[in-house]
Design a protein around this nucleic acid. Structure first.
Lengths: 328, 328
DNA sequence: GACCCTAGCTAAACCGGTTTATCTCCGGCT
DNA sequence: AGCCGGAGATAAACCGGTTTAGCTAGGGTC
């Protein structure tokens, strides 16, 4: 089974290749009845232009790329990215090239390769680092890109982000209003920009302890043990993701610390896990966020000048894991 | 910043385009010192062949595809697929084209389009239906494909699967050994092949009720309410995924049915959710499964004749949600 | 009637590779 | 000397599109 090419259409319609190209792309240069005839033949033969050939003529690759840096096995629990990808897809007519690599170097190399190979029209950048080399790379390559979730502005790149600073501030204010004074934070990877942003907001809002984690259940449990075992244990903990929060809740329970009686818990990013654990969580519409990012990238690819889009502020969904401080 | 083409290399090395092509691809027809010279120039100029141009010469597209049919927003909770994708990636040197669509028709159309556009060298087929039209489609298109997770053999296609029948049998035997006699099953979508397979295994192993669900928490809860509210409530329920099982456990609790005292619960597919809910679960290494699928697909793309690979039998991880039947 | 324009189309070049046909040179065999 | 064969290279065709230059016919202008 051979697929029809533009030559076949041309032969069948009795015109030249060039005329077919003009007709199919709705461009001037052919009469209306010729165009109609060509379109008729094309649809009759089930013609589909080869993206490959089209891309070769310096047109678009009709695909955008996303690289995730993760220890491969750790990916399954990250519902966030899957939601994000689903949202992106919902707004994209073109394909998404996805690759998971295990190091930052490999990521950089991959972006360069994709660019050199003419494989993508643009890329998403996620997990932005503090002073991220990728920002510079994109500019020098001239590869359209959108920074996803890295608060603030980045060089010449378009950016879609949620205000982590304001969100963290509102969470702390909420806990303070409940009477909490000793508030701790279990942070995510300190190399990530949004972690720093949240750290800053946390520190300026309250005088509390910050313990670093890496988003795994183990690190969440360890951090919680550390905090609860200290001389002045906190009465509220804000975790940087759902997995660590759930693990923390389990540790508290095993230590005989009542939640929310003696300890209030807030998770960043809502999920089935939080719903089931009845954890108060900071919920954002990740799907819509992805959709917004996709729109931004497509716009940049089309040649629009890069813009910054601020996502709506995450909303705190109060469930059973937060309560007024016992001391209040 | 313009990237170097094969023509630039040829000019710089003082040979023809053809010679460069032969040299770079390690094929006979050029002398060793010419080859060395060409390779030197190429690496010096940072040459990368354009996949696009290469694909045009009826070579490979250097990418494989995966289409998921899901209501887009439902995707985030499916850790299974993310694990699977991560595993696939771990064994692939080429890129993965991923697209989420919302209907089976769109999926078929997309496969055809990818094929027509020369976009992929092969595809993964997941969520196999009973008598799935895609199997026939792949054969007629001549598009290399691997069926992932559809028990058994499928036409001319390669297949990678776990023995759902044996797994279900072993779960039921385990529950019977604990003294359970009234065992129920909350199944997944009945249109899926593996659902039918598990149904068959369940029915031949025990005389129990099967209620259909759709993998959502709501359906799991509804099914559980139905079962527990019946005249002869089951003493054990096997759920087709983790989300439904967790929801079911919550319903049981709310109805005052003790788990595992009065009701034992088993979830199909382990996850953070099961770990946290301390549910006994049928665990398989989804990551390794994906890796195996990728190897199979690459082999078929390379021209190997399609083979069936049977995955290791899922292992039952016993946690706190199963116990001897109270009646035993 | 000579001239110019333009609509409508064709032929051909081009994108960046691969592949095939051809050409040259050199050495070995009889 | 004459013939053959093979190694090593090149030119050119090809993949399936897009794009540009050029050609032709018909109509309007003076």
């Amino acid at each position: 089974m051979k697929r029809p090419t533009i030559k076949d259409i041309a032969a069948a319609a009795g015109v030249s290749k060039g005329a077919v190209s003009l007709a199919l792309n709705g461009r001037a240069g052919v009469s209306e009845d010729t165009r109609a005839r060509v379109l008729g033949v094309a649809s009759e033969l089930g013609y589909r232009p080869s993206v490959t050939a089209r891309a070769l003529s310096s047109a678009s690759a009709d695909a955008v790329g996303l690289v995730l840096v993760r220890p491969p096995r750790a990916l399954g629990d990250e519902a966030f990215f899957f939601q994000l990808i689903a949202g992106m897809q919902s707004e994209m007519s073109c394909a998404l090239l996805l690759q998971v690599v295990s190091s930052r170097e490999a990521e950089i190399a991959l972006y360069q390769r994709w660019w050199a190979e003419h494989r993508v029209d643009g890329v998403f950048l996620v997990d932005l680092l503090v002073s991220d080399p990728r920002v510079e790379l994109m500019s020098s390559l001239g590869l359209p890109a959108v920074v996803v979730g890295g608060s603030g502005h980045h060089g010449e790149l378009a950016s879609v982000w949620a205000d982590d600073y304001a969100a963290m501030t509102s969470v702390v204010e909420y806990l303070k209003a409940l009477g909490h004074r000793r508030i701790a934070r279990v942070a995510g990877l300190s190399s990530l920009l949004h972690t720093v942003r949240r750290d800053q907001a946390f520190e300026s809002a309250v005088d509390g302890v910050i313990v670093s984690g890496d988003y795994t259940a183990e690190s969440g449990a360890a951090a919680t043990r550390l905090l609860l075992g200290s001389g002045e244990p906190p009465t509220a903990i804000v975790y940087d993701n759902d997995v660590m929060a759930v693990a923390g809740a389990a540790v508290a329970e095993s230590l005989g610390v009542a939640v929310p009686g003696e300890l209030s818990i807030v998770a960043w990013d809502d999920s089935v896990l939080c719903q089931h654990g009845r954890l108060t969580a900071l919920s954002r519409d990740t799907f819509a966020f992805g959709a917004r990012a996709a729109r931004a990238l497509l716009a940049v690819v089309e040649g629009a000048s890069p813009t910054d889009v601020e996502d709506v502020l995450p909303e705190l969904v109060v469930r059973g894991s937060t309560a007024p401080s016992a001391r209040a």
